[in-house]
């Protein structure tokens, strides 16, 4: 469904509004109008805010150094001096959960930005040009789409030179690149199909009839009306990429110690699955909440932007 329909089904303007300014019809204002009454949006936004703060300023949440090991208290239970207990190495689990947010949020944001830019651009080109360009780009997309995400990422990450393991950002970057390379085709497909839906609209034809350049047609007519589905999916994907990062780190090919990541902690907690389940529980809880928050936000955005669901 196109954005034109969104416009028709949105509420009429406030009857008491006597000003001559119309309500702004940008995508963001559309979404905001619908989302501000949605509790799902507020809950997810609050959770995401907390996680983002955690990633940016972990010291707000804990004074403990996550790399400070008290081996003597290794495997201590929650409440025995620390909130969440200590792990195999004697690290404070609470501090590690807080510090682990950074990797997840960074990977999630960078990967989403990357897939949106790459997938979106390719989708627009394919959808707008059509013909052989479309066929070629779509087939290339299909090739990447056919590679299973985890398998592809494993091969990609293992084959990268040692150089990438030098510092934290480079390690994060290498995970991001792997996920972008394998993740862009789904967004490209989505963008292509919404461009194809918007393109035959009469207002696009009218702009062409006026002699508008392709750049103008895309920039002011097609893009603003074709963006909504991609934003929805990108938001939901953000959660999925966080999970993918944890999975790769768990397998030992994403981030690696001494970097801190929920995936790494989950992996190292496996040894105590029966005896010290709290080591496994807390990082898993944080991971699940972060993924859930983005998926919930995605749902709220979809409710706001997709007229079929309203």
């Amino acid at each position: 469904m196109t954005e034109a329909t969104v416009a028709e089904t949105t509420a009429p303007s406030d009857p008491h509004d006597t000003s001559d300014e119309g309500e702004v019809r940008s995508l963001a204002s559309d979404a905001w109008r619908a989302m501000r009454h949605n509790p799902l949006f507020w809950v997810s936004a609050a959770m995401i805010l907390v996680f983002v703060l955690m990633a940016a300023f972990p010291s707000l949440f804990t004074r403990t150094d996550p790399n400070f090991a008290v081996l003597a208290e290794s495997r201590s239970k929650p409440g025995e001096g620390t909130w969440f207990g200590r792990d195999l190495q004697g690290y404070d689990i609470y501090a590690r959960c807080i510090y682990g947010a950074r990797a997840s949020i960074l990977v999630g944001l960078f990967t989403t930005t990357g897939t949106v830019l790459v997938g979106g651009t390719i989708g627009i080109i394919a959808g707008y040009m059509g013909g052989w360009v479309d066929s070629l780009l779509s087939r290339i997309g299909d090739v990447f789409f056919a590679i299973p995400l985890l398998l592809g990422a494993i091969i990609f990450l293992v084959s990268l030179p040692e150089f990438f393991n030098n510092n934290y950002l480079l390690v994060v970057l290498k995970v991001v690149v792997a996920l972008v390379v394998l993740g862009w085709p789904s967004l490209a497909r989505l963008m292509r199909s919404s461009v194809i839906q918007v393109k035959p609209n009469d207002y696009v034809q009218a702009a062409r009839a006026l002699g508008a350049s392709p750049l103008r047609v895309i920039g002011s007519h097609i893009l603003p009306n074709a963006l909504a589905p991609m934003i929805v999916v990108a938001t939901i994907n953000l959660g999925a990429y966080i999970a993918a990062e944890a999975t790769l780190s768990f397998l030992g090919i994403g981030l690696q110690a001494p970097a801190i990541s929920w995936g790494i902690d989950i992996s190292s907690a496996i040894v105590g699955l029966r005896t010290t389940p709290h080591m496994l529980f807390f990082p898993s809880l944080f991971l699940s909440l972060a993924v859930l928050a983005f998926i919930m936000l995605g749902d709220a955005v979809r409710d706001a932007l997709d007229p079929k669901n309203r």
Binding site: E8, L27, N201, Y203, Q205, L210, G211, S220
Partner: peptide, 22 residues
């Protein structure tokens, strides 16, 4: 030539970009 020939479309709901002001 485009200046001299213009077009008016059938459907008033799809012929105006919903994200632009009048």
């Amino acid at each position: 030539l485009r200046r001299n020939i213009q077009i008016v479309f059938q459907d008033p709901y799809t012929s105006l970009n919903p994200r632009m002001t009048v």
